Simulated scan of single mutants.
Amino acid sequence: MSDANQNGNDGKKTYHKKATGNALNTVKKHSKEHELKLFGSCFCPFVQRVWISLEVKKISYQYIEVDPYKKPDSLLEVNPRGLLEDLNNGEALLPPDSKIRAHSRLWTDHVNRHVIPGFYRFLQEQDQGKQVEYAEELKTEISKLVDAADKNGPFFLSDKMSFVDIQIAPWIIRLNRVLKPYRGWPEPEPNTRWAKWVDAIEHNEHVQATTSTDDLYLDSYERYAENRPNTSQLAKAVNSGRGLP
């Protein structure tokens, strides 16, 4: 795909505007008119968080594909900022025990404050020396999360997917589909707790149902890997050292 219309550079890959593979099949199943509408961009991990939640909870909804660079008025009426943000659909996925709920919220905050910014910092960095530094930082933040998880798993709290798993799942699948080809991110070491968690996420039916083919992510994230101007509000925030927008 050419990015000539976006940046005037022939031969550049551009973001996809329609889901593919399993995700496309799920889109077709949820194309009928419904009062609950999920405005989504097929490559957006924040949208995938909500999408996985809806699938896990078996909530009826209508999926509406949105070009994040050409947002329709129907989205702006709902969200004037035009961000494709999370719907508040996570509470039911938190455990009833107050201590475990607090534990889950604490480590969700860790994902948002450290893992996700670290992912983009590493991906967007053009200096190879700093890439090595940022790769180690990301590994450290992931290790902290793994150490806080249930020792048996394979998910964060137990053998069932819960809130924290959904918060990090879109980035786990992008490690192999984005960071590996663009930055040489390594496969998990066999028989480790991290490998067990990654495998559980990759093979979860709800994650698979909302995941497109690998080429969609490879093409859509080239602009991040090259740190092109005007890539996204998130990319701009990471470049300026700020947190998630």
Rank of each mutant, 00 (worst) to 15 (best):
P186W: 03
N239K: 12
L234F: 12
G8A: 06
D67T: 00
T210P: 06
G11Q: 08
D159G: 00
R49A: 00
D215H: 05
D165V: 02
L24D: 05
D3M: 08
L84G: 04
L54F: 10
N230R: 12
Y224M: 06
L244I: 15
S104C: 15
M161T: 02
H110K: 11
V132A: 13
N88Y: 13
F163A: 11
A102N: 09
V66P: 03
E189N: 07
A148G: 06
V207A: 08
A23R: 08
E187H: 07
V78P: 05
K139W: 07
T20Q: 07
P95I: 03
N204V: 09
S98C: 03
K236N: 14
S98P: 14
F119Y: 13
Y224V: 02
F119G: 02
Q126D: 08
P68D: 01
V78Y: 11
K17E: 10
L244K: 04
P95H: 05
S104A: 15
E202F: 08
K160E: 12
G243A: 13
H30V: 01
F43G: 03
K12F: 11
N9C: 12
I59L: 15
Q128G: 04
Q124V: 01
L87I: 15
E35P: 05
P80W: 09
E226R: 15
N239W: 02
R49K: 15
N7L: 11
K70Q: 14
W171A: 08
G11D: 05
G129C: 05
G153P: 01
A237I: 02
